[in-house]
Write a protein that binds this DNA or RNA. Structure first.
Length: 550
RNA sequence: UGGGGUAUCGCCAAGUCGGUAAGGCACCAGACUUUGACUCUGGCAUUCGUAGGUUCGAGUCCUGCUACCCCAGCCA
């Protein structure tokens, strides 16, 4: 169920204009993750934007790893990012790495030095910081700023050859130490890092900084529209400076948009990492995580995620999208896709006293009333069944349509039953119900003799399959207006609830990632990690909406 | 107190040359219902941060305020 209703947004308008005016005949975008962590739904927003924008206008999109810092990046992340982007259903034109361009970047740096636009600085990092000035005070020029070009050339060569230790010197762009834009105060563009790179091994011991590397990567690939998040707005003058001074032929345009925030969760890599490291969740793909892998394990589909990304729009406003919006799109997608089945999460045994002992009859049930093509299945029915604890109340309030003493309800796909007797344990807890059924009310016979207000789900007791069912709630509690509060103080300690319930016997052969609608409960996914031959574990993706209030 | 941004319904978000406020989520009411689900119908901004100005007419133009976000990594 993909809805490709294209929503207008300011970036798309820019593209349309660029195409109409002939500035570009074809657009090329890119998704440039740094392979230093797992992708989350915020990345999905950027991925969807880049790929679909190019696709709409017959352009191309590259997947490019921005691997300019070997100390933080790993092959494992490259693998997971590729997996996630593919899973979302996007095909890149080219799979590239910033490290593919290290040679060219080095040559362009030499060009800058020769033009007097860059110099090797031997100030320490602390000194560089001091010389940089502050937000309100201009910086000072480094004593090395005006050293001879030949000297910088030699030193830069030596940096590359590994003749100098980490931190001893850097290559800086020579721009303006008094600029009100801190990024223009002679930014460092190359630093020495003696570390193995996942792609280039030990070939290099100097690595370009983002602000220098990124515009070159874009220009080299012929990227026309380089989309990034708001915090890079201040970097745009530097981006343009690099493209211009390095004399790149292709001129990419950087355009910034707001990153995604969703209520009741966290989105930064840093915070997600804390959740994993503090053991608040058990891994990056924990079903409570907003990571692509977490959402996948929870049971979200690529279509739902993409529809969500399309629906939230693109703008420059800092915003927080209601998490209910995400839930809406998975419900919508699974409505027609997920077969219905009955599962009892908190079992209460019911004995149907007038039903013959030792009789088991097979009943027919629709797999999806909203999608008849999904066919029917048969389910067993007998004298003993389980129903949901919350579907019975001994002393119900008004408007309680479910089972209570003397009341009659419909068992979905089976018969009407009436509750006659409540069995309790010593502590007064209801442990069993005795009911009677009416053979004339069998589902599918067209019985119209009388109506009942409630229909409840059930599972036949002797053949029911025990299953583990995991219910999730948001990781983060609704925040009150408390600034500077550590997000860990708002952690929802009840974000996971594990239940032992029963599912229909025909669930024996489910496979990991199979999705179902548990009748009257919500949508569930077969967990790929916890499910074993002995026991199936289901993750609740999302509950059904409900207007029922006790 | 420097620079860069943003302010349209509870939450997202469209709003071409100024012409008299799309849509989605949420919510409320009703209909339907073998899911208190779905679906359907109706309701949800006389108003676009605020104060002025220009104009026959301004969310869209001008001016002044206000609030919030980002920037002082040899991170991206």
């Amino acid at each position: 169920m993909e809805e490709k209703t294209i929503q207008s947004n300011f970036i798309r308008n820019i593209v349309i204009n660029d195409l109409e005016t002939g500035k570009h005949n074809k657009i090329i975008t890119r998704f440039p993750p740094e392979p230093n962590g797992y992708l989350h739904i915020g990345h999905a927003k950027a991925i969807t934007l880049n790929f679909e924008l190019a696709d709409e206008f017959n352009g191309e999109t590259n997947l490019r790893f921005d691997d300019t810092n070997p100390e933080k990046e790993e092959e494992e992340y490259v693998r997971s990012i590729i997996e996630d982007v593919s899973w979302l259903g996007f095909d890149w034109e080219r799979l590239l790495y910033a490290s593919d361009y290290f040679d060219e970047m080095y040559e362009r740096a030499i060009l800058l030095i020769k033009k007097g636009k860059a110099y090797v600085d031997e100030l320490s990092s602390d000194e560089i910081r001091e010389y940089r000035g502050t937000l309100t005070e201009p910086g000072k020029e480094s004593p090395f700023r005006n050293r001879p070009i030949e000297e910088s050339l030699t030193l830069f060569q030596e940096m590359k050859e590994g003749k100098h230790p980490d931190g001893s010197m850097v290559l800086r762009a020579k721009i303006d130490m008094t600029s009100p834009n801190m990024n223009m105060r002679d930014p460092v563009i190359y630093r020495i890092i003696h570390a193995d790179h996942h792609n280039t091994g030990d070939k290099w011991c100097i690595y370009p900084m983002y602000d220098y590397a990124h515009p070159l990567e874009d220009a080299i690939e012929g990227i026309t529209h380089s989309l990034c998040t708001l915090e890079f707005e201040d970097h745009r003058p530097l981006y343009d400076w690099v493209v211009r001074e390095c004399e790149m032929e292709s001129i990419p345009r950087q355009i910034e948009f707001a990153r995604l925030n969703i209520t009741n969760t966290v989105m930064s890599k840093r915070k997600l990492k804390v959740l994993v490291e503090e053991g608040i969740v058990d891994s990056w793909d924990d079903p409570r995580m907003p990571t692509i892998s977490g959402l996948r394990r929870r049971g979200y589909t690529p279509e739902a995620i993409k529809n969500f990304c399309r629906a939230i729009g693109i703008s420059k406003t800092n915003s927080v999208v209601d998490q209910q919006m995400l839930e809406h799109f998975i419900r919508e997608d699974l409505k027609l896709k997920a077969p219905r089945t009955m599962a009892v999460l908190r079992p209460l045994k019911v004995v149907i006293t007038n039903y013959p002992k030792d009789q088991v009859e097979l009943l027919e049930a629709e797999n999806n009333p909203d999608n008849p093509e999904m066919g029917v299945r048969t389910i067993p029915f007998s004298r003993e069944i389980y129903i949901e604890q919350e579907d019975f109340m001994e002393n119900p309030p008004k408007k309680y349509f479910r089972l209570f003493p003397g009341n009659e309800v419909r068992l979905k796909n089976a018969y009407f039953i009436k509750c006659n007797k409540v069995i309790k344990d010593e502590e007064g807890n209801v442990v069993e119900l005795h009911c009677t059924y009416d053979p004339e009310t069998k589902s599918g016979t067209g019985f119209t003799g009388r109506k009942v207000k409630g229909t409840i789900h059930w599972v036949e007791a002797s053949q029911a399959i025990p299953a583990e069912i995991r219910l999730y709630e948001p990781l983060i509690l609704d925040e009150e207006e408390q600034e500077d509060k550590d997000f860990l103080e708002n952690i929802n300690s009840n974000s996971l609830e594990i239940l032992e319930g029963f599912v229909e016997p025909n669930m024996v052969d489910v496979k990991p990632q199979d999705k179902f609608q548990f009748f009257r409960h919500g949508y569930f996914n077969v967990d790929p990690k916890h499910t074993t031959k002995e026991k199936i574990t289901f993750n609740r993706i999302v509950s059904l909406k409900s207007s029922f209030k006790l």
